[in-house]
Nucleic acid binder design. Structure first.
Lengths: 234, 234
DNA sequence: GTTAAAATGCTACTTAGGTAGCACTAAGCA
DNA sequence: TGCTTAGTGCTACCTAAGTAGCATTTTAAC
């Protein structure tokens, strides 16, 4: 990143707060940032990835993006990762250098740092101490995949819906963080179902007094009842 | 590993052939092996893991093991990973140092190398060059999880069954490698279904002339037809 | 070889979840 | 302001997949 860049200091500040990079000293941080350029992607921008992930590596500064797979035959989407501030992509291509076919779409206006993949790989080689924080991050991604996988196989849809909500609920406000403004369609994409079915179960949650939704605004009325939905299946 | 150990040379030889470690020179390889001890686990041994994965790290020398999750309520199992020669576990705990609850069961008599987790972590820190092969290995695990996840969400069971078979078919002999002797129950556990359903679709595959099974021995008669099952859903 | 246990191949039945369709409502925009 | 579009809440229906049960066959153990 050119040091005369308008967003240099802003990016540096955010990078220093990123759990993956926060242990680095100023000079190391600047050596990292020097390879990156600042990008802005508008809300609802779609990127049909594939070869591209091979060449570019991204750090999310702000906004949300989804990485998803599509089944053209059925016309269904499945959101594999919901990326937010401090997330990196694509770590799989970063690690093995192979193509990783994924669709990407911004949910908000997004700010990103972008660098050539080989440059990021080279920087890591020169700064192996980053593995102290990078490997736990990769592990957290793997855990998300694994949890998601076993849930999809072993749990029914109301359970998956309840788990999704629990994993995003704010203990204080009892509101959903990050997914509060998503449509039922997007929620369905996250748990591997369809809008109609998600809506069906949301109505049933409402009737049980678990939550109250009006227009993309969810209030968890009874967190305990929601937790029960996960343990006792009915 | 004690250098007087009966299995020392045998283990060293296998380790040297493992794609993850094969680029190491003799001395480095021996420094690795010195931390490990040789173990034998009998067929059908079950390990209820959890805290244990925190403290021990394993390399598979021979035999197959499955890592799986259980839903006690439904009494269903789901096989997350089928581990074989050259596989490592648990890489997630290795990377983030957190507990990883998984059930493990040997499918064959198995030989393993076992070391304290902290020792393995320490060895990696001292030999960062291992990341050249270790990170691609981790990435391959992630890809398995991700593929499995999207398949489970977007594909129906005959498709998942066909994909499973395709991923294990030997192009030469048209027989299944590694999963050929598994029961329908175990196959079901791998694709997130149940024995009865898997059997139903196997019978339908037979009728279509795709394959021939008699008693845990599968012959793919028409590989092309099997591939079609994956692309054209019916 | 005999016997018990495991695996397989079925039939019949139940049900969760997907689909289609439509009315209604809120949000966004000219 | 009205108009368009996206999102929501329903009903009715369909279907794949799960369940139960059982007879048969194979394998492994004794």
């Amino acid at each position: 990143m050119d040091s005369k860049d308008l967003h240099y200091n802003y990016s540096l500040e955010l990078l220093a707060k990123n759990p993956i990079f926060k242990n680095l000293d100023e000079a190391t941080l600047e050596s990292l940032l020097s390879g990156f350029s600042y990008k802005k992607w508008e809300k609802n921008t779609e990127f049909f990835h594939g070869d591209q992930t091979l060449y570019k590596f991204y750090i999310v500064l702000s906004g949300r993006l989804k990485m998803y797979q599509v089944d053209v035959e059925q016309g269904r989407e499945f959101t594999v990762f919901l990326l937010k501030q401090n997330d990196l992509f694509d770590v799989i291509s970063l690690m093995d250098g192979h193509k990783h076919s994924m669709n990407i779409e911004t949910i908000d206006d997004c700010e990103l740092l972008c660098a050539p993949m080989h440059l990021m790989r080279h920087w890591i080689e020169e700064h192996p101490e980053i593995n102290k924080t990078l490997l736990p991050y990769v592990a957290s991604r793997m855990r998300i995949l694994e949890t998601n996988l076993t849930d999809n196989v072993l749990s029914d849809i109301p359970t998956r819906l309840a788990k999704l909500m629990l994993s995003y609920v704010d203990e204080q406000s009892h509101k959903l963080k990050l997914i509060n403004d998503l449509s039922h369609d997007e929620i369905a994409n996250m748990i591997g179902s369809t809008r109609a079915v998600v809506n069906r179960h949301i109505q049933s949650f409402k009737k049980s007094g678990i939550l109250d939704i009006h227009r993309k605004n969810t209030d968890i009325l009874d967190l305990h009842l929601l937790e029960e939905r996960v343990t006792d299946r009915r």
